[in-house]
Amino acid sequence: MGKVFDPSLILEFIPTLIKYLGVTLEILAVSILFGVLIGISAAIPKLFNIPILKQIVTVYISFIRGTPIIIQLFLVYYGLPALLSLIYIDITRMDAFFFVIITYSISNGAIFAEIFRGAINAVEFGQTEAAYSIGMTPFYNFTRIVFPQAIRVAFPNIANTVIGSLKDTSLAFTIGIMDMMGRGETLIASSAHALEVYIALSVIYYVVVLILEKGFRVFEKYTNRYQGIDTSVA
């Protein structure tokens, strides 16, 4: 046994852990992508007031926002195989990675649905009317008038969701994923230096978040390019 706390181990652990950053970012990227798709489909029934579908979407969003991600992970991990076994599909041997992707996509989808709905409602209806009055089709109205304005409102929230989701991926190891956190747990088991591992992990997460924040700020400026000097409103 070496020292109880050895700071040099932190530097030693960082390169080992960073190799698994790819898995963490992969979970993040894929679940954000599917989350956006789910979010768009879930926002439509609420925007266009489609009966029945609207109620289903409301319950879905309420449930996701009302339960912790760790419970959602367990529910998908144990529930999906049970559900699919009813129609004789056996997925009990499926890689835990897919369960993680499914859970985080569903979870992000609910949050994105709310963001999209709020952003599109934030664009005044007069804009749509004006677009129609000069002869634009609904498609052009959406892609040229509503969407560019909505994305400006939605973007800060989307950025927050992405960063929140990155932090949430640190819980995926509870169902046995070998991401950065999972690798950290095995490092702790083999080296018995828990504190150093967690410091190393914190440093990596913090740096990734800082980089993401910087990138988002640049893009946010771009979405606000027609807003003149005062970009603090809305």
């Binding site: 640190s170 967690y198 992990l201 997460y205």
Partner: peptide, 14 residues
Amino acid sequence: SFFRGTPAIMHIML
């Protein structure tokens, strides 16, 4: 900045 930039599980573990 640090506490908003790292997962809460890290704070508990640290």
